[in-house]
Lab assay of single mutants.
Amino acid sequence: AFSSEQLARLKREFNENRYLTERRRQQLSSELGLNEAQIKIWFQNKRA
C-alpha cells in the first residue's frame, strides 16, 4: 500500500508524463522509498 504522500507524488508525475524513463523511475524509487517495480506497475495500472 502507498502512503497518501507517495500517491500524491505519483499522481503529479503521471500528470506531467504518462511514461517514465528508467532514470526517472530510479529517482522516484529512491525519493519515495519504493522499489522500481512498484512504481512501474502503478504507472501501468494508471494508464490502463
Score class of each variant (00 low, 15 high):
Ala1Asp: 14
Ala1Ile: 11
Ala1Gly: 12
Ala1Ser: 10
Ala1Tyr: 12
Ala1Leu: 12
Ala1Cys: 11
Ala1Thr: 13
Ala1Phe: 11
Phe2Ile: 11
Phe2Glu: 02
Phe2Ser: 02
Phe2Ala: 02
Phe2His: 03
Phe2Asp: 00
Phe2Pro: 05
Phe2Val: 05
Phe2Cys: 03
Phe2Leu: 12
Phe2Asn: 02
Phe2Trp: 06
Ser3Arg: 04
Ser3Tyr: 03
Ser3Ile: 02
Ser3Glu: 03
Ser3Gly: 04
Ser3Ala: 04
Ser3Pro: 02
Ser3Val: 03
Ser3Cys: 03
Ser3Lys: 04
Ser3His: 03
Ser4Asp: 14
Ser4Met: 10
Ser4Phe: 11
Ser4Tyr: 11
Ser4Leu: 11
Ser4Ile: 11
Ser4His: 12
Ser4Gly: 12
Ser4Val: 13
Ser4Gln: 13
Ser4Thr: 12
Glu5Trp: 13
Glu5Lys: 07
Glu5Thr: 07
Glu5Pro: 04
Glu5Gly: 07
Glu5Arg: 07
Glu5Cys: 08
Gln6Pro: 01
Gln6Arg: 02
Gln6Ala: 07
Gln6Phe: 02
Gln6Asp: 04
Gln6Cys: 04
Gln6Asn: 04
Gln6Thr: 07
Leu7Gln: 06
Leu7Asp: 05
Leu7Ser: 05
Leu7Ile: 11
Leu7Val: 08
Leu7Pro: 00
Leu7His: 06
Ala8Pro: 00
Ala8Leu: 08
Ala8Trp: 06
Ala8His: 07
Ala8Asn: 09
Ala8Cys: 08
Ala8Met: 09
Ala8Val: 08
Ala8Glu: 14
Arg9Ile: 13
Arg9Met: 08
Arg9Thr: 08
Arg9Pro: 01
Arg9Leu: 07
Arg9His: 07
Arg9Asn: 04
Arg9Ala: 12
Arg9Ser: 07
Leu10Phe: 02
Leu10Glu: 01
Leu10Thr: 00
Leu10Met: 04
Leu10Tyr: 01
Leu10His: 00
Leu10Cys: 02
Leu10Ile: 02
Leu10Asp: 02
Leu10Lys: 00
Lys11His: 15
Lys11Tyr: 13
Lys11Thr: 15
Lys11Asp: 15
Lys11Met: 15
Lys11Ala: 14
Lys11Glu: 15
Lys11Phe: 11
Arg12Tyr: 12
Arg12Gly: 06
Arg12Asp: 11
Arg12Asn: 08
Arg12Ile: 12
Arg12Ala: 14
Arg12Lys: 13
Arg12Val: 10
Arg12Phe: 13
Arg12Thr: 10
Glu13Ser: 04
Glu13Tyr: 05
Glu13Val: 05
Glu13Arg: 02
Glu13Pro: 01
Glu13Phe: 04
Glu13Ile: 06
Glu13Gln: 03
Glu13Met: 05
Glu13Asp: 03
Glu13Cys: 05
Phe14Ala: 03
Phe14Val: 01
Phe14Arg: 02
Phe14Asp: 01
Phe14Met: 02
Phe14Ile: 03
Phe14Tyr: 10
Phe14Ser: 02
Asn15Ile: 09
Asn15Val: 08
Asn15Cys: 13
Asn15Lys: 12
Asn15Glu: 15
Asn15Gln: 12
Asn15Pro: 01
Glu16Ser: 08
Glu16Gln: 13
Glu16Val: 10
Glu16Asp: 08
Glu16His: 09
Glu16Trp: 07
Glu16Tyr: 08
Glu16Phe: 08
Glu16Gly: 05
Glu16Ile: 12
Glu16Leu: 13
Asn17Lys: 05
Asn17Gln: 05
Asn17Cys: 11
Asn17Val: 04
Asn17Met: 04
Arg18Asp: 06
Arg18Gly: 07
Arg18Met: 12
Arg18Trp: 08
Arg18Glu: 10
Arg18Pro: 15
Arg18Gln: 13
Arg18Val: 07
Arg18Cys: 08
Arg18Thr: 07
Tyr19Phe: 13
Tyr19His: 14
Tyr19Ser: 06
Tyr19Arg: 06
Tyr19Trp: 11
Tyr19Glu: 10
Tyr19Gln: 08
Tyr19Cys: 07
Tyr19Lys: 05
Tyr19Pro: 04
Tyr19Ala: 05
Tyr19Asn: 09
Tyr19Gly: 04
Leu20Pro: 15
Leu20Glu: 06
Leu20Lys: 01
Leu20Ser: 02
Leu20Asp: 12
Leu20Asn: 02
Leu20Met: 05
Leu20Ile: 08
Leu20Arg: 01
Leu20Val: 05
Leu20Tyr: 03
Leu20Phe: 03
Leu20Thr: 02
Thr21Ser: 12
Thr21Asp: 12
Thr21Lys: 03
Thr21Trp: 03
Thr21Glu: 05
Thr21Leu: 02
Thr21Pro: 06
Thr21Val: 03
Thr21Phe: 03
Thr21Arg: 04
Glu22Ala: 14
Glu22Tyr: 08
Glu22Cys: 07
Glu22Pro: 15
Glu22Ile: 10
Glu22Phe: 10
Glu22Ser: 12
Arg23Gln: 14
Arg23Trp: 11
Arg23Tyr: 13
Arg23Met: 13
Arg23Ile: 14
Arg23Glu: 15
Arg23Phe: 11
Arg23Ser: 14
Arg23Pro: 09
Arg23Leu: 14
Arg23Thr: 14
Arg23Lys: 13
Arg24Ala: 07
Arg24Glu: 08
Arg24Lys: 12
Arg24Met: 09
Arg24Trp: 03
Arg24Tyr: 06
Arg24Val: 10
Arg24Ile: 07
Arg24Asp: 05
Arg24Gly: 05
Arg24Thr: 06
Arg24Phe: 06
Arg25Tyr: 13
Arg25Asn: 11
Arg25Leu: 15
Arg25Glu: 07
Arg25Ile: 15
Arg25Asp: 01
Arg25Thr: 15
Arg25Ser: 15
Arg25Gln: 12
Arg25Phe: 12
Gln26Arg: 15
Gln26Cys: 06
Gln26Ile: 09
Gln26Gly: 06
Gln26His: 10
Gln26Met: 12
Gln26Pro: 01
Gln27His: 07
Gln27Leu: 10
Gln27Ala: 10
Gln27Gly: 04
Gln27Met: 10
Gln27Asp: 08
Leu28Pro: 00
Leu28Cys: 03
Leu28Ser: 01
Leu28Asp: 00
Leu28His: 00
Leu28Tyr: 00
Leu28Trp: 01
Ser29Glu: 04
Ser29Cys: 08
Ser29Phe: 03
Ser29His: 03
Ser29Leu: 02
Ser29Arg: 03
Ser29Tyr: 03
Ser29Met: 06
Ser29Thr: 05
Ser29Ala: 15
Ser30Met: 14
Ser30Phe: 13
Ser30Gly: 08
Ser30Cys: 09
Ser30Thr: 13
Ser30Ile: 15
Ser30Gln: 14
Ser30Glu: 14
Ser30Pro: 01
Ser30Arg: 14
Ser30Tyr: 13
Ser30Asn: 13
Ser30Trp: 11
Ser30Leu: 14
Ser30Lys: 14
Glu31Thr: 05
Glu31Tyr: 05
Glu31Trp: 04
Glu31Pro: 00
Glu31His: 03
Glu31Asp: 07
Glu31Asn: 03
Glu31Gly: 02
Glu31Ser: 04
Glu31Ile: 06
Glu31Leu: 06
Glu31Arg: 02
Glu31Cys: 05
Leu32Cys: 03
Leu32Gln: 00
Gly33Ile: 03
Gly33Cys: 12
Gly33Val: 04
Gly33Leu: 05
Gly33Ser: 06
Gly33Asp: 07
Gly33Trp: 03
Gly33Pro: 02
Gly33Tyr: 04
Gly33Thr: 04
Leu34Pro: 01
Leu34Glu: 00
Leu34Lys: 02
Leu34Ile: 12
Leu34Phe: 03
Leu34Val: 12
Leu34Tyr: 02
Leu34Met: 07
Leu34Cys: 07
Leu34Gln: 01
Asn35Ala: 14
Asn35Val: 07
Asn35Gln: 11
Asn35Leu: 09
Asn35Met: 10
Asn35Phe: 07
Asn35Thr: 15
Asn35Tyr: 06
Asn35Gly: 11
Glu36Ile: 07
Glu36Lys: 05
Glu36Val: 11
Glu36Leu: 05
Glu36Thr: 06
Glu36His: 05
Glu36Tyr: 04
Glu36Ser: 08
Ala37Ile: 13
Ala37Asn: 14
Ala37Arg: 12
Ala37Gly: 09
Ala37Met: 15
Ala37His: 13
Ala37Asp: 15
Ala37Glu: 15
Ala37Leu: 13
Ala37Tyr: 13
Ala37Lys: 10
Gln38Tyr: 08
Gln38Gly: 03
Gln38Pro: 02
Gln38Trp: 10
Gln38Arg: 07
Gln38Met: 14
Gln38Ala: 12
Gln38Phe: 10
Ile39Cys: 02
Ile39Gly: 00
Ile39Tyr: 01
Ile39Trp: 03
Ile39Val: 10
Ile39Leu: 07
Ile39Asp: 00
Ile39Ser: 00
Ile39Asn: 01
Ile39Lys: 01
Ile39Thr: 01
Ile39Ala: 00
Ile39Arg: 00
Lys40Thr: 15
Lys40Cys: 11
Lys40Gln: 15
Lys40Ala: 15
Lys40Met: 15
Lys40Val: 14
Lys40Glu: 15
Lys40His: 15
Lys40Trp: 12
Lys40Asp: 15
Ile41Thr: 11
Ile41Lys: 12
Ile41Phe: 09
Ile41Leu: 13
Ile41Val: 09
Ile41Met: 14
Ile41Arg: 12
Ile41Trp: 14
Ile41Gln: 14
Trp42Gln: 00
Trp42Glu: 00
Trp42Pro: 00
Trp42Lys: 00
Trp42Tyr: 06
Trp42Arg: 00
Trp42His: 02
Trp42Ile: 03
Trp42Val: 01
Trp42Gly: 00
Phe43Ser: 00
Phe43Met: 03
Phe43Pro: 02
Phe43Ile: 02
Phe43Thr: 00
Phe43Tyr: 06
Phe43Val: 02
Phe43Glu: 02
Phe43Cys: 04
Gln44Thr: 07
Gln44Cys: 08
Gln44Glu: 14
Gln44Asn: 07
Gln44Leu: 08
Gln44Trp: 09
Gln44Lys: 09
Gln44His: 11
Gln44Arg: 09
Gln44Ala: 12
Asn45Pro: 02
Asn45Phe: 08
Asn45Leu: 13
Asn45Gly: 07
Asn45Asp: 11
Asn45Trp: 13
Asn45Met: 11
Asn45Arg: 10
Asn45Thr: 10
Lys46Val: 10
Lys46Ile: 09
Lys46Gly: 06
Lys46Asn: 11
Lys46Trp: 11
Lys46Thr: 13
Lys46Arg: 15
Lys46Leu: 07
Lys46Asp: 04
Arg47Ala: 13
Arg47Tyr: 09
Arg47Pro: 04
Arg47His: 11
Arg47Ile: 13
Arg47Cys: 09
Arg47Val: 12
Arg47Gln: 13
Ala48Ile: 09
Ala48Tyr: 08
Ala48Met: 11
Ala48Leu: 12
Ala48Arg: 10
Ala48Pro: 05
Ala48Cys: 09
Ala48Asp: 10
Ala48Gly: 08
Ala48Trp: 07
Ala48Asn: 11
